[in-house]
Design a protein around this nucleic acid. Structure first.
Lengths: 209, 209
DNA sequence: CTCAAATATGAGAGTACTCTCATATTTGAG
DNA sequence: CTCAAATATGAGAGTACTCTCATATTTGAG
């Protein structure tokens, strides 16, 4: 059993919560290794070093544990992102910073990607939060006349899809900052910036970061 | 049992091929309804109106039939696309036409989307063909000085991801040509066209189409 | 240290399939 | 129409799990 994020959160707490966290960490590990569908409850308990029946003392089914794992990870990612976004006013720089940091967090905590990529549709409420978050930055950019688009859910779908490409590309290889930088440019151009303005914004962001 | 593309292809041929096609059509139908993982072999034979054991006279496992179904569909989509692309010289118009027609084929043959979206990683050889195809249009655009990008696999990943967003958005709703048009603009901007040139290319393509 | 409450255990019943094979049916060449 | 070959059938053995529950173990408040 590897130690993970959820066990960190509950270290020193009661047995119940520690066991629960061990299961959550094991679920993340197994999903990263085998994928969501192939991850069996018995794989999770084995990875956690617990008996099979223990699972059912804590969760009803696989969907429930994966939803909780994805939610916990998403929460932590947002927490770390938020810290870095504070005080950035320019919307283009905000988008570049958020994208860069997001990808960098997921390539550092490699197992998290599989859970978030596989759990996206499992988490309609988180998806809504994420979309609200992105939407506000995109609307800020439109207000600042940096972006020239109509901010729709469909547009955010596209932004998210591009970022997901960057995450997926670095999932099974060493992190490559050039890919992340490239996808930042793609996102800005998608949002209606000219190629040259997009390139300048990325420059500015990397000076500022 | 609904009648589908594969049965059309083998109508009037020997029993073996017709049964095989019935299974392929049923597989497409079941995957569209339940998704790749939830689609069971027994669902497929039931949908085809055949006995369970019949499946194994034709395929070894689910992966094999889905690979063949995805390949057959991909082949047909490319066949229809190719017909429309002939004689278009301008790379931007080629990309817009290909994207528009691709999305329109998949929204017309609704069940195909789920098989192609779910079968993308099942088909490394098809993926290579598709990428080669796209790559040649992108390089043409660079040569024509319409696109201002380095044509890499990572770039094609992004183009494909944007087109997939358009397909997915229209999967469970009525087709909406505005979404397709919007994603065409996104693709052209992604490829380094300025927003205004991208908009003009889409205009030109819709006049030409 | 004690012991009631909390928690973990794992055997096994139940479920949902996959895959095989002896048999029945259908095909289509002659 | 005939009949050997081709094909389909479906019962059932096998597999891989999920989920329960009586029992064993551990916890931590007092």
């Amino acid at each position: 059993m590897r130690h993970g994020h959820f066990q960190d959160l509950t270290a020193g707490r009661g047995k119940r919560e520690r066991t629960r966290s061990a299961l959550l960490d094991a679920a993340v590990e197994v999903v990263a290794e085998k994928g969501v569908e192939a991850a069996k409850i018995s794989d999770i308990t084995t990875a956690a070093g617990l008996a099979n029946g223990t699972f059912y003392n804590h969760f009803n089914d696989k969907d429930e544990i994966l939803r909780e794992a994805a939610y916990g990870i998403a929460f932590e990612v947002v927490r770390r992102l938020d810290a870095e976004m504070e005080g950035i006013d320019d919307a283009a720089i905000r988008v570049v910073t958020a994208t860069t940091r997001f990808v960098s967090i997921l390539t550092a905590e490699r197992d998290w990607s599989a859970v978030l990529l596989g759990g996206a549709d499992r988490l309609p409420d988180f998806r809504e939060d994420l979309y609200r978050y992105l939407r506000s930055d995109l609307e800020r950019g439109v207000a600042q006349k940096k972006f020239d688009v109509e901010v729709t859910t469909f547009l955010i779908d596209q932004v998210v899809a591009l970022i997901a490409v960057a995450v997926r590309a670095q999932l099974h290889t060493a992190p490559d900052p050039r890919l992340t930088r490239e996808v930042c440019g793609s996102v800005l151009r998608l949002l209606g910036m000219t190629p040259s303005k997009a390139a300048r914004a990325i420059e500015a962001a990397s000076r500022q970061g």
